[in-house]
Amino acid sequence: MLPGLVKRELTLAVRDTGLRIGLLVYLLAVLASGIVFVVQGLGAAGMEHGTAGEATVGRVLAVPWVLCGFFLPWAWWRMTWREQGGDLLRWSVRCGAAPGQLTLAKLVAGHLCLLETVALSLPLLVLAWETTLTPANALVLGILDLLAFLVLAATAIVGWNLTARGEMVALGLSYLTLVALALFRRGLVVAVGAGGTIAANLVLAALITTLLVFTRRSRLRELEVLT
């Protein structure tokens, strides 16, 4: 059941005009930064760390990650607010599922969007110039990684309880790979990327919670009115 629900969420997300524009801008940014990176790399062959060229490359490479940080919360906002309360319940009746399962499908679909977006940037990330990690950066990254782990753990628990185990294991492993990558490739680019990723996750966690609360509240309101 869950793959069907997830597929629907992803299809709806892909059809959204706002998301299409966001994705297009994002892909163009990835492409542009890739070109700049190659040009810089070729023009500054043998360039040492800490040069102006390196800093430019770092900044340009950060663009897709920053966009990633904005694009994903938007995707989540559209996914979660498109259907809530009565609409969510109606769709749950049509597909014979609990509203929680639909919410989980949204969560999984959002994570797939996230991983897909990150995967698009990975080749650039791997090529990225590594910058020195300051103690402050390390602390921030450590906190972000911990938060990422908590979000992942919460997602896994919810998924496990709703018997969507296969999907949750695959999702968890992909996500752990991302976190591991962020841990190994610490630097300005990675910090921005990880920051965007974690911010997106936090936003989506907040949206999911809001969605659940709203669904519940509409139910409660109804019961309150009835009693």
Binding site: M1, P3, G4, L5, K7, R8, T11, R94, C95, G96, A97
Partner: peptide
Amino acid sequence: GEYLEFCLESRG
């Protein structure tokens, strides 16, 4: 077609 397919898919 997608709507019908989603209805069927989501019911397993």
